[in-house]
Write a protein that binds this DNA or RNA. Structure first.
Lengths: 191, 191
DNA sequence: CAGCTACGTTTTAAGTTGCAACTGAAAATG
DNA sequence: CATTTTCAGTTGCAACTTAAAACGTAGCTG
């Protein structure tokens, strides 16, 4: 009981954000996602990893399952055991999570360096930034963006949906301006 | 009063996520950020745009200002008026916000297409996806990632921080095609 | 079976959030 | 300069969330 959706968080102006926040805007959702990505699968594991109360954890896990972000599977061997596994929908939240993580690292006061490092499986090097890409793959900085009404789109883009890659899927750097960009760290990467 | 940080949201394992969630994890923060990016600057504007209560808005704006995400500037002409403007730190949250937005769009049930569309200022086409990049700029999918302890990094990556672009700042698509070179077309500043 | 583990629910108490109505300051108006 | 309007912030109270601990219930284990 008591787990009622509070309100669709202002669904006016059909935008994915309220929808996303309806699940992930809750107080422990992202931490659970992170733990999940970290390899945590069981109730008691989440419990001790996060330091959350049992009832809240129970509630959040149910909610995440209900929304298809986690999958609830019974262990064959020990049937009281339940495994919570990320679905594809859950995995798709990774860019958002990683982006938040990077932001928190960049501006966080008390962080010297994250400990669980996300690495590229191929070369096991820490990953780079999370970037917004143009339809043709160029990297966009905040200054390159604009928000307009759908009806004011040029015809060429009318059929294209925000968030979809174009047919030319490789990314190009939008190398014009100085000091733009989410990768606002020193270009030389050294610190 | 009353606005005390609840708890650092489990700061163990120094990670940027709890830090980010400390501000942006609150119930209206992202919606305010979105409105802000949308060109909303004044208290009453937020009020009617979001349908939030005055005190909550007041509280959230203060908190966002306190955390350096918004700047609170007095209007010259009308000095009771206050403008809330995104700082660079605020703009740096865009990839996370846009990523959430896209996720919500992709999986949202009731969305046919967002109305305020984010476009590339250069060609006014809807932007593409938000992607995680490798240190050398390749685009990474969820499956390409791994989470390891910092101490287990190869020496080459030991000094590099997650979230920073390497010195070769253009992005490559992660298809094994090695001859897939690309050059970024420099762009003229728009508007 | 007794005891333990994994998971979840209920209970109770404390803390937060949110809306509405109020306060108060700075323009605008007459 | 008194009055009204506008903008922002505060207070009061109801509704909700959170946490900690007790309780319930399967399913293993000895």
């Amino acid at each position: 009981m008591g787990t009622d959706v509070r309100e669709p968080l202002k669904e006016l102006s059909a935008c994915g954000l309220p929808a996303a926040l309806e699940v992930m805007g809750e107080r422990w959702s992202f931490m659970i996602l992170r733990a999940s990505f970290n390899g945590v699968h069981h109730f008691e594991e989440f419990l001790s990893e996060l330091g959350i109360a049992r009832n809240i954890l129970s509630n959040r896990l149910s909610r995440l399952v209900e929304h298809g972000i986690l999958d609830r599977v019974q262990d064959e061997a020990d049937r009281r055991r339940v495994e919570y596994c990320l679905t594809e929908k859950g995995f798709d939240l990774l860019p958002a999570m990683v982006s938040l993580r990077h932001w928190g690292l960049k501006y966080g006061v008390e962080n010297v360096g994250m400990d669980p490092v996300i690495v590229d499986e191929r070369d096991r090097m820490p990953i780079g930034p999370v970037a917004m890409l143009a339809h043709d793959g160029r990297i966009l900085g905040p200054a390159d963006l604009n928000m307009i009404a759908r009806k004011d789109l040029p015809e060429a883009g009318r059929d294209r949906r925000e968030g979809t890659p174009a047919d030319a899927p490789h990314a190009l750097h939008n190398c014009d301006d100085p000091g733009d960009a989410l990768d606002a760290e020193p270009r030389e990467a050294a610190e």
